[in-house]
Design a protein around this nucleic acid. Sequence first.
DNA 1: GTTTGAATGAAAATGAATATCAAAAGCACA
DNA 2: TGTGCTTTTGATATTCATTTTCATTCAAAC
Lengths: 147, 147
Amino acid sequence: MILQKKKTFNDFAAAKGLRSTRQRDVILDMFLSTHQHVSVEDLYLKVKASHPGIGYATVYRTLKLFAESGLAREILLHDGQTRYEHVLAGEHHDHLVCTGCSAIIEFEDATIEKLQEEIALRHGFQIRSHKMEIYGLCADCSAKGQA
Amino acid sequence: MILQKKKTFNDFAAAKGLRSTRQRDVILDMFLSTHQHVSVEDLYLKVKASHPGIGYATVYRTLKLFAESGLAREILLHDGQTRYEHVLAGEHHDHLVCTGCSAIIEFEDATIEKLQEEIALRHGFQIRSHKMEIYGLCADCSAKGQA
DNA sequence: GTTTGAATGAAAATGAATATCAAAAGCACA
DNA sequence: TGTGCTTTTGATATTCATTTTCATTCAAAC
């Protein structure tokens, strides 16, 4: 699966005539080894730990490339930092975001996806991607709120 | 309806012990007279036209208050500017965002809302609000793309 | 009116993201 | 394996939205 993703990016890079560099390999490895929703800062620190030479700007640039290649997706939450999440082929997952503890729970619902397509059709709209976030309190936080 | 909204905010202000000021009245009027998705910049310019004395920071602060009061909601698109939209009581509307011409089409779907509630329930999650954006090409842009 | 603390406006500060540019590195070709 | 050309990089400066600061103004309770 990781190999498949590397291939996705390499194909994209080849098609765009991008050069293959050590830095991009490292950042790709690191990105693939993370869990969901890495901020640029997060990834930069992770990268710097083992490769101190790699700069901030390169991480920014490279993550934008990942997004362009379809490997990653930018998510805007409300903390002013762009985060990147993995795009698993053909899979859309959406988020429950806890406003108490900032926990993010992922979910997926095929019916909602279907309905989205219907809505798009009704408006003559061609879907490229979508994003859904539900804000509220997670089970823990709403339990704490009661106590 | 506009009166109802003013009341919403005034109630909120009263409950929070906020003072009623000329600036907030003006900004509220201006906000209510806009259509969807005003950026702070937009509203600031609109306000400044008739009330040159009112400052940038006040518009920022006031819009945040509107959001807190439930009157408005922050939307993050991908252009680096926070926008505010009207929250109509009890109504959730979501967006089709055209990546070609930046047009925003609104829609509403009761079934999706229901499904969201089910999903939240399944995770013990209490919904406060939600946001759904579908990205792609609007009818015009995809027609142009063909041509 | 006086008093008191919140609200304002102008300007400075912050912070994420992007641009700049000289130096380094990839890649095609000899 | 070098040569030349172009992309990429890293450090830094810059931009731009948003937030903070702080002295002044103003709302509202007494």
